[in-house]
Protein backbone atom coordinates (compact mmCIF):
# COMPACT_ATOMS: atom_id res chain seq x y z
CA UNK A 1 0.00 0.00 0.00
CA UNK A 2 1.48 3.33 -0.99
CA UNK A 3 1.39 6.23 1.45
CA UNK A 4 -1.04 8.12 -0.80
CA UNK A 5 -3.77 5.51 -0.55
CA UNK A 6 -3.77 5.95 3.24
CA UNK A 7 -4.44 9.66 3.01
CA UNK A 8 -8.29 9.62 3.24
CA UNK A 9 -8.17 7.47 6.37
CA UNK A 10 -5.49 9.60 7.93
CA UNK A 11 -7.45 12.72 7.05
CA UNK A 12 -10.58 11.54 8.87
CA UNK A 13 -8.63 10.47 11.95
CA UNK A 14 -6.67 13.74 11.79
CA UNK A 15 -9.88 15.75 11.76
CA UNK A 16 -11.20 13.79 14.73
CA UNK A 17 -8.10 14.24 16.86
CA UNK A 18 -7.91 17.82 15.60
CA UNK A 19 -11.34 18.49 17.10
CA UNK A 20 -10.07 17.26 20.44
CA UNK A 21 -6.96 19.45 20.23
CA UNK A 22 -9.27 22.33 19.39
CA UNK A 23 -11.36 21.73 22.52
CA UNK A 24 -8.23 21.55 24.71
CA UNK A 25 -6.93 24.72 23.09
CA UNK A 26 -10.26 26.44 23.78
CA UNK A 27 -9.83 25.54 27.43
CA UNK A 28 -6.40 27.19 27.53
CA UNK A 29 -7.66 30.29 25.77
CA UNK A 30 -10.71 30.65 28.04
CA UNK A 31 -8.56 30.71 31.16
CA UNK A 32 -5.94 32.94 29.60
CA UNK A 33 -8.45 35.51 28.44
CA UNK A 34 -9.82 35.88 31.94
CA UNK A 35 -6.68 35.65 34.02
CA UNK A 36 -3.49 35.75 31.91
CA UNK A 37 -2.58 32.42 33.45
CA UNK A 38 -1.72 29.34 31.44
CA UNK A 39 -3.10 26.28 33.15
CA UNK A 40 -0.79 23.36 32.39
CA UNK A 41 -3.23 20.99 34.10
CA UNK A 42 -5.71 21.49 31.24
CA UNK A 43 -4.92 18.09 29.74
CA UNK A 44 -5.77 16.41 33.04
CA UNK A 45 -9.36 17.70 32.79
CA UNK A 46 -9.66 15.79 29.51
CA UNK A 47 -8.23 12.63 31.03
CA UNK A 48 -10.46 12.95 34.11
CA UNK A 49 -13.59 13.50 32.00
CA UNK A 50 -13.05 10.24 30.13
CA UNK A 51 -11.94 8.18 33.09
CA UNK A 52 -14.62 9.34 35.53
CA UNK A 53 -17.33 8.62 32.95
CA UNK A 54 -15.85 5.15 32.49
CA UNK A 55 -15.86 4.67 36.25
CA UNK A 56 -19.54 5.63 36.62
CA UNK A 57 -20.59 3.59 33.60
CA UNK A 58 -18.69 0.40 34.42
CA UNK A 59 -18.36 0.61 38.18
CA UNK A 60 -21.59 2.34 39.13
CA UNK A 61 -23.84 0.99 36.39
CA UNK A 62 -25.24 4.47 35.79
CA UNK A 63 -26.75 5.14 32.31
CA UNK A 64 -24.39 6.70 29.78
CA UNK A 65 -25.78 10.27 29.54
CA UNK A 66 -26.11 10.55 33.32
CA UNK A 67 -22.59 9.19 33.85
CA UNK A 68 -21.23 11.75 31.38
CA UNK A 69 -23.15 14.55 33.07
CA UNK A 70 -21.91 13.54 36.52
CA UNK A 71 -18.34 13.35 35.21
CA UNK A 72 -18.57 16.85 33.71
CA UNK A 73 -19.93 18.23 36.99
CA UNK A 74 -17.19 16.48 38.99
CA UNK A 75 -14.45 17.79 36.69
CA UNK A 76 -15.88 21.30 36.89
CA UNK A 77 -15.72 21.03 40.68
CA UNK A 78 -12.09 19.86 40.39
CA UNK A 79 -11.37 22.83 38.13
CA UNK A 80 -12.92 25.25 40.62
CA UNK A 81 -10.96 23.66 43.45
CA UNK A 82 -7.78 24.02 41.40
CA UNK A 83 -8.45 27.73 41.06
CA UNK A 84 -9.33 28.23 44.71
CA UNK A 85 -6.56 26.13 46.22
CA UNK A 86 -3.67 26.62 43.79
CA UNK A 87 -4.11 29.55 41.44
CA UNK A 88 -5.82 32.02 43.75
CA UNK A 89 -3.09 31.99 46.44
CA UNK A 90 -0.53 32.62 43.68
CA UNK A 91 -2.38 35.44 41.92
CA UNK A 92 0.39 37.93 42.69
CA UNK A 93 3.38 35.72 41.84
CA UNK A 94 5.43 36.04 38.66
CA UNK A 95 5.02 33.80 35.61
CA UNK A 96 7.21 30.93 36.76
CA UNK A 97 5.44 30.15 40.04
CA UNK A 98 1.86 29.60 38.77
CA UNK A 99 3.36 27.67 35.85
CA UNK A 100 5.15 25.26 38.19
CA UNK A 101 2.13 25.08 40.49
CA UNK A 102 -0.18 24.01 37.67
CA UNK A 103 2.43 21.46 36.59
CA UNK A 104 2.45 20.20 40.18
CA UNK A 105 -1.34 20.02 40.08
CA UNK A 106 -1.06 18.06 36.85
CA UNK A 107 1.28 15.52 38.52
CA UNK A 108 -1.15 15.29 41.44
CA UNK A 109 -4.29 14.87 39.33
CA UNK A 110 -2.88 12.28 36.92
CA UNK A 111 -1.31 10.13 39.61
CA UNK A 112 -4.30 10.38 41.94
CA UNK A 113 -6.48 9.26 39.06
CA UNK A 114 -4.12 6.34 38.51
CA UNK A 115 -4.40 5.54 42.20
CA UNK A 116 -8.21 5.70 42.41
CA UNK A 117 -9.30 4.40 39.00
CA UNK A 118 -6.37 2.12 38.17
CA UNK A 119 -3.57 2.56 35.69
CA UNK A 120 -4.96 0.45 32.85
CA UNK A 121 -5.99 2.34 29.69
CA UNK A 122 -9.76 2.70 29.43
CA UNK A 123 -12.13 2.86 26.50
CA UNK A 124 -15.80 3.87 26.49
CA UNK A 125 -18.40 2.38 24.14
CA UNK A 126 -19.22 4.66 21.17
CA UNK A 127 -22.32 6.85 21.53
CA UNK A 128 -24.20 5.32 18.61
CA UNK A 129 -23.08 1.98 17.22
CA UNK A 130 -19.77 0.70 15.96
CA UNK A 131 -20.74 0.30 12.30
CA UNK A 132 -18.76 2.81 10.22
CA UNK A 133 -20.72 5.01 7.82
CA UNK A 134 -19.56 5.05 4.21
CA UNK A 135 -19.23 8.57 2.90
CA UNK A 136 -17.77 8.75 -0.58
CA UNK A 137 -16.19 5.34 -0.18
CA UNK A 138 -14.35 6.32 3.00
CA UNK A 139 -15.48 4.57 6.17
CA UNK A 140 -16.11 7.07 8.95
CA UNK A 141 -16.82 6.02 12.53
CA UNK A 142 -20.05 7.59 13.83
CA UNK A 143 -18.12 8.70 16.90
CA UNK A 144 -16.00 11.01 14.72
CA UNK A 145 -19.18 12.76 13.61
CA UNK A 146 -20.24 13.12 17.25
CA UNK A 147 -16.87 14.67 18.03
CA UNK A 148 -17.15 17.12 15.15
CA UNK A 149 -20.73 18.06 16.00
CA UNK A 150 -19.88 18.56 19.65
CA UNK A 151 -16.85 20.70 18.84
CA UNK A 152 -18.98 22.86 16.58
CA UNK A 153 -21.67 23.29 19.23
CA UNK A 154 -19.15 24.06 21.97
CA UNK A 155 -17.41 26.56 19.74
CA UNK A 156 -20.70 28.39 19.12
CA UNK A 157 -21.54 28.28 22.83
CA UNK A 158 -18.15 29.68 23.78
CA UNK A 159 -18.42 32.32 21.08
CA UNK A 160 -21.76 33.46 22.44
CA UNK A 161 -20.43 33.31 25.98
CA UNK A 162 -17.33 35.36 25.31
CA UNK A 163 -18.52 37.82 22.67
CA UNK A 164 -22.27 38.15 23.05
CA UNK A 165 -22.86 37.86 26.77
CA UNK A 166 -22.14 40.26 29.58
CA UNK A 167 -20.30 37.53 31.48
CA UNK A 168 -17.78 37.00 28.68
CA UNK A 169 -17.20 40.70 28.29
CA UNK A 170 -16.70 41.05 32.02
CA UNK A 171 -14.20 38.19 31.91
CA UNK A 172 -12.24 39.86 29.15
CA UNK A 173 -12.37 43.21 30.90
CA UNK A 174 -11.00 41.77 34.11
CA UNK A 175 -8.09 40.38 32.12
CA UNK A 176 -7.19 43.45 30.06
CA UNK A 177 -7.54 45.95 32.90
CA UNK A 178 -7.97 44.38 36.32
CA UNK A 179 -8.13 47.69 38.17
CA UNK A 180 -10.61 49.26 35.79
CA UNK A 181 -12.78 46.17 35.94
CA UNK A 182 -12.76 46.22 39.73
CA UNK A 183 -13.80 49.88 39.64
CA UNK A 184 -16.90 49.15 37.58
CA UNK A 185 -17.84 46.33 39.90
CA UNK A 186 -16.48 43.23 38.21
CA UNK A 187 -14.96 40.80 40.65
CA UNK A 188 -11.74 39.59 39.07
CA UNK A 189 -11.49 36.52 41.28
CA UNK A 190 -15.03 35.49 40.39
CA UNK A 191 -14.24 35.87 36.68
CA UNK A 192 -11.13 33.71 36.96
CA UNK A 193 -13.17 31.15 38.89
CA UNK A 194 -15.83 31.08 36.17
CA UNK A 195 -13.12 30.72 33.52
CA UNK A 196 -11.65 27.72 35.31
CA UNK A 197 -15.09 26.17 35.59
CA UNK A 198 -15.85 26.68 31.89
CA UNK A 199 -12.50 25.38 30.76
CA UNK A 200 -12.70 22.34 33.03
CA UNK A 201 -16.15 21.60 31.62
CA UNK A 202 -14.94 21.92 28.02
CA UNK A 203 -11.95 19.71 28.82
CA UNK A 204 -14.14 17.05 30.44
CA UNK A 205 -16.47 17.01 27.42
CA UNK A 206 -13.47 16.58 25.13
CA UNK A 207 -12.38 13.64 27.26
CA UNK A 208 -15.82 12.01 27.09
CA UNK A 209 -15.96 12.37 23.31
CA UNK A 210 -12.45 11.10 22.69
CA UNK A 211 -12.40 8.08 25.01
CA UNK A 212 -14.55 5.90 22.69
CA UNK A 213 -11.97 6.48 19.91
CA UNK A 214 -8.60 6.57 21.64
CA UNK A 215 -7.65 4.76 24.80
CA UNK A 216 -7.39 7.11 27.78
CA UNK A 217 -5.06 6.23 30.59
CA UNK A 218 -4.15 8.11 33.75
CA UNK A 219 -1.04 9.64 32.19
CA UNK A 220 -2.33 10.56 28.75
CA UNK A 221 -3.51 14.00 29.87
CA UNK A 222 -0.14 15.75 29.94
CA UNK A 223 0.74 15.17 26.30
CA UNK A 224 -2.80 15.99 25.17
CA UNK A 225 -2.67 19.21 27.15
CA UNK A 226 0.67 20.21 25.64
CA UNK A 227 -0.57 19.53 22.13
CA UNK A 228 -3.69 21.57 22.83
CA UNK A 229 -1.43 24.44 23.87
CA UNK A 230 0.60 24.03 20.67
CA UNK A 231 -2.67 24.19 18.73
CA UNK A 232 -3.69 27.39 20.50
CA UNK A 233 -0.32 29.01 19.67
CA UNK A 234 -0.42 27.73 16.10
CA UNK A 235 -3.87 29.17 15.36
CA UNK A 236 -3.30 32.52 17.03
CA UNK A 237 -2.91 32.80 20.77
CA UNK A 238 -5.94 34.14 22.61
CA UNK A 239 -8.53 33.73 19.86
CA UNK A 240 -11.28 31.12 19.99
CA UNK A 241 -11.25 30.83 16.20
CA UNK A 242 -7.49 30.50 16.25
CA UNK A 243 -7.69 27.70 18.79
CA UNK A 244 -10.10 25.76 16.59
CA UNK A 245 -8.15 26.37 13.38
CA UNK A 246 -4.89 25.46 15.12
CA UNK A 247 -6.43 22.32 16.57
CA UNK A 248 -7.61 21.02 13.23
CA UNK A 249 -4.39 22.01 11.45
CA UNK A 250 -2.27 20.28 14.07
CA UNK A 251 -4.47 17.17 14.10
CA UNK A 252 -4.39 16.82 10.32
CA UNK A 253 -0.68 17.51 9.94
CA UNK A 254 0.20 15.15 12.75
CA UNK A 255 -2.01 12.41 11.37
CA UNK A 256 -0.72 12.89 7.82
CA UNK A 257 2.87 12.72 8.98
CA UNK A 258 2.37 9.03 9.72
CA UNK A 259 2.22 8.36 5.98
CA UNK A 260 5.66 9.85 5.40
CA UNK A 261 7.77 9.36 8.51
CA UNK A 262 7.99 6.45 10.98
CA UNK A 263 4.98 6.56 13.27
CA UNK A 264 7.13 6.71 16.41
CA UNK A 265 8.10 10.26 15.51
CA UNK A 266 4.44 11.37 15.49
CA UNK A 267 4.60 12.91 18.96
CA UNK A 268 7.57 15.06 17.95
CA UNK A 269 5.69 16.60 15.00
CA UNK A 270 3.59 18.88 17.20
CA UNK A 271 6.64 20.26 18.96
CA UNK A 272 8.61 20.76 15.77
CA UNK A 273 5.63 22.73 14.47
CA UNK A 274 5.62 24.68 17.73
CA UNK A 275 9.28 25.62 17.45
CA UNK A 276 8.83 26.59 13.79
CA UNK A 277 5.75 28.72 14.43
CA UNK A 278 7.34 30.43 17.43
CA UNK A 279 10.38 31.20 15.32
CA UNK A 280 8.70 32.25 12.08
CA UNK A 281 5.36 33.70 13.13
CA UNK A 282 4.87 33.82 16.89
CA UNK A 283 1.41 35.32 16.62
CA UNK A 284 0.06 32.27 14.84
CA UNK A 285 -2.00 31.79 11.69
CA UNK A 286 -4.84 34.18 12.52
CA UNK A 287 -2.73 36.62 14.51
CA UNK A 288 -3.08 37.18 18.19
CA UNK A 289 -4.51 40.11 20.11
CA UNK A 290 -1.98 39.55 22.89
CA UNK A 291 1.24 38.88 21.06
CA UNK A 292 2.50 42.43 20.54
CA UNK A 293 2.19 43.26 24.20
CA UNK A 294 5.57 43.75 25.87
CA UNK A 295 5.45 40.69 28.06
CA UNK A 296 5.96 38.28 25.22
Amino acid sequence: MTPWSLIPHLLTSGITIGAIYALVALGFVTIYRASQIINFAQGEFVMLGGIITFFFLRGGGIPYPLAALLAVILVIIIGLLLQVLVVYPLRKASVLIPLMATLGASIFLSNTSGLIFGTLPKVLPPFSGERPLEIGGIPIAPQSLWVLGATFLLLITLYILSHRMLLGKAMEASSTDPLGAELVGISRNLMVLVAFGVSAGVGALAGIFITPIFYTSYNSGTLLGLKGFVAAVLGGWGKNGGAVLGGFTLGIVESMSVAFIPSGYKDAVAFVILLLILYIRPKGILGSPFIDSRRW
Binding site: L226, D267, L275, P282
Partner: peptide, 19 residues
Protein backbone atom coordinates in the same frame (compact mmCIF):
# COMPACT_ATOMS: atom_id res chain seq x y z
CA UNK B 1 14.27 30.00 21.17
CA UNK B 2 15.61 32.69 23.49
CA UNK B 3 13.78 35.39 21.59
CA UNK B 4 10.71 34.16 23.46
CA UNK B 5 9.71 35.14 26.95
CA UNK B 6 7.69 33.83 29.87
CA UNK B 7 5.21 31.08 29.16
CA UNK B 8 6.28 30.79 25.55
CA UNK B 9 9.92 30.22 26.41
CA UNK B 10 8.81 27.62 28.96
CA UNK B 11 6.71 25.89 26.33
CA UNK B 12 9.40 26.01 23.65
CA UNK B 13 12.03 24.49 25.94
CA UNK B 14 9.50 21.92 27.08
CA UNK B 15 8.84 21.10 23.42
CA UNK B 16 12.58 20.69 22.86
CA UNK B 17 12.67 18.21 25.75
CA UNK B 18 9.82 16.19 24.24
CA UNK B 19 11.48 16.16 20.81
Amino acid sequence: ILKLKGYFLALATLGFGEI
